[in-house]
Simulated scan of single mutants.
Amino acid sequence: MDITQNIKKEKVEVKEIDVKKIASKAIEIVALLILSAIFIFPFVWMLSTSVKNPQEMMQLPPTIIPKETVLENYSAAWNSGPFFRYLLNSIFVTGSILIIQFVVMVPAAYAFSKIKFKGEKILFGILLVGLMIPPQVTFLPVYMMMSKLGLINTYVPLIIPFMTTSFGIFLLRQNFMQISDEIIEAAKLDGASDLKIMFRIMVPMAKPAVITFILFNFIYHWNNYFWPLVMTNTDAIRTLPIGVALLKSSEGITAWNVIMAGNIILILPIILVYIFANKKVKEAFMYSGIK
């Protein structure tokens, strides 16, 4: 009898544990679905509005799935101004910033992590202070300097102030510090220069951090509205966020379908870059043996 009762108790306990696991998993899935819906809904609404006609756009209650798909909203947004020029400017400015930052960031992070030199702690402290200063604080002195040099409405003030990044150097430095010094010493014994060690050994081993930083930095500078707005006032130099913002004044406050179409054009490169970078980050983690 005792054995039978014990078996029954164990079965009851197992069932209770299974019920708790199922309930916990169900709550987790529901929570994830709710959070996903909160983040995805604005994009769905933007895409839906971008293909609506003016009448359906103002309809109450609003519809998620348009009754009629109006792709002409995209051509209206594209033809409302020199959008192709805005796109080329955004590609050139963002690409130049990322390339220059990478060239500056890697040697700086390598020096702070693997080379001992006089004043290292002071310089690193100044670097950390730079993390706390937003660009909006420095735009006025930078604007005055660029204005005196006659560089307003050129690519220079859109690129040069961002040629280095405190956060990027700090992030890469922390990753470089995790790499064993024996690897560097072995490379030097084989005759490798510091330049070769940085870009052939350190960067591949810190690939997840590098790709992640490039992804977030790309998103920031591609969407940057404030700085180009301050430093430019002609269409020849303006970037895509400025062009999208001008849709409101050119098309009118009620043409939200055209404005949303412009926003889809703006975020499409970000989505493509994210898809590409997401795959590369996974490959980088597999390469480095991190699971």
Rank of each mutant, 00 (worst) to 15 (best):
P107Q: 04
P107V: 07
Y110S: 01
A111V: 13
F112P: 08
F112D: 01
S113D: 07
S113P: 11
K114R: 09
I115Q: 10
K116R: 14
G119P: 14
E120L: 13
I122N: 00
G125W: 09
L127G: 11
L128F: 09
V129R: 02
G130M: 04
G130T: 00
L131E: 01
L131H: 04
M132E: 00
Q136I: 11
V137T: 13
V137S: 02
T138Y: 06
F139P: 09
P141T: 04
V142A: 13
V142D: 11
V142E: 14
V142P: 05
V142N: 15
M144C: 01
M144L: 15
M145R: 10
M146N: 13
M146I: 06
G150W: 05
I152Y: 00
I152Q: 01
T154V: 07
Y155P: 06
V156H: 03
P157S: 12
L158C: 10
I159Y: 07
P161D: 06
M163H: 06
T164W: 13
T164N: 14
S166V: 08
S166D: 08
F167Y: 15
F167Q: 09
G168H: 11
F170T: 08
L171Q: 12
L171C: 00
L172F: 03
L172S: 12
R173K: 15
R173A: 12
Q174I: 01
Q174T: 12
Q174N: 13
N175Q: 14
N175E: 14
F176E: 12
M177Y: 14
Q178L: 14
S180K: 15
D181F: 06
D181E: 13
E182W: 03
I183E: 02
I184M: 07
I184H: 05
K188F: 09
G191R: 08
A192H: 01
L195A: 14
K196Q: 15
K196C: 11
M198F: 02
F199Q: 05
F199G: 02
R200Q: 15
I201N: 03
M202W: 04
P204D: 01
